[in-house]
Design a protein around this nucleic acid. Structure first.
Length: 296
DNA sequence: CGCTTTTGACCTGCGC
DNA sequence: GCGCAGGTCAAAAGCG
């Protein structure tokens, strides 16, 4: 894990300063400038274009300052940066088996298979799990589980060290989909909810949330989409924050906190963005209807 | 009745 | 090797 807050950026060689860079030890890499931020997003097949309606209200003249992610996320928020984005080479060290595909070795039943025999209660021991790319969002909201257009099933909750708030674990209800989501409230800023998405949806259709006729009517999706549409190069964190806050306070305002991409993905995914694709339907699809980002 | 949430137990990785 | 913390499982309870 990197606890060094002032270090040379591995990609640009620039020195990252702790006051603007949040790093997630180990799990997360960080963006140290907007260019990289964009690059990583592109690597995930995300390309942001002309801002949707809500974003039209935001001035796009100043550059978004670099933000990383880490244990200091909360402090970053308090520092006025509720707009941040984190990335994580999550599979960094240990995960070396194919994504959920091979999770079958130990967890096939998750997707409908028959649970392995468990005498009294021996749990399967399979190869290490591989972590999928993750993206985290920080949202100023009193609601923990924000609606995002997909349906999730909660499968666990754990108390988190150094935080009075528990962390909840959700899984996409689509049996074939392995996307997971973690929701936790910042211990340093209880008004902030940190939502971390992991994996990519394997289904194109968005599961409409109950009570909504379409995902586009999801307040969360509506709010988030604009956030994702931000072109980092165009906004300073403070300006963006100010603008976002000015948009309205009645709805949760999810903000891209981080994107985690595995190192190997970071280097090999570029083609994904050009192929169009699954990646495109993945994490982004998790939170933003394809149509909204297809504006390209 | 089917789906979701709750919750305690278990598994796994990692640091010491 | 041990202990801790994060993550996941799965039975039971709750809800519409």
């Amino acid at each position: 894990m990197d606890d060094d807050t002032n270090k040379v950026d591995p990609i640009t060689g620039e020195l990252s300063t702790s006051d603007v860079t949040w790093t997630f030890p180990g799990d997360y890499s960080y963006f140290s400038n907007d260019v990289r931020e964009n690059n990583v997003l592109n690597e995930f097949g995300w390309s942001f274009h002309p801002p949707p309606p809500v974003f039209d209200q935001i001035d796009s003249n100043s550059p978004l300052q670099e933000v990383g992610v880490g244990d200091h996320v909360a402090s970053g928020v308090q520092g006025g940066g509720d707009v941040s984005m984190m990335s994580n080479p999550s599979s960094s060290n240990s995960e070396d088996r194919p994504a959920e595909a091979s999770s079958t070795a130990s967890g096939d039943f998750i997707s409908g298979g028959v649970p392995p025999e468990k005498p009294g209660k021996v749990k399967k021991k399979g190869p290490k799990r591989i972590r999928q790319p993750r993206f985290a969002f920080m949202t100023k909201s009193e609601i923990d589980h924000l609606e995002d257009g997909y349906r999730w099933r909660k499968y666990g909750q754990k108390a988190v060290k150094n935080s009075p708030f528990p962390r909840s674990y959700y899984r996409c209800t689509n049996s074939k989909c392995t996307v997971k989501k973690r929701v936790e409230r910042s211990s340093e800023d209880p008004t902030t909810v940190i939502t971390t998405y992991e994996g990519q949806h394997c289904h194109h259709t968005v599961g409409f949330p109950r009570g909504l006729s379409s995902p586009y009517e999801s307040p969360y999706a509506r709010q988030l989409a604009p956030s994702l549409a931000v072109q980092p190069v165009n906004y300073s964190r403070q300006q963006f924050t100010d603008q976002v806050h000015a948009i309205g306070s009645s709805q949760p305002r999810p903000q891209l906190v981080s994107s985690e991409s595995e190192d190997h993905l970071s280097h090999k995914l570029p083609q994904a963005s050009t192929q169009g694709s699954n990646v495109d339907q993945g994490l982004l699809g998790d939170i933003v209807p394809p149509r909204m980002r297809r504006h390209q």
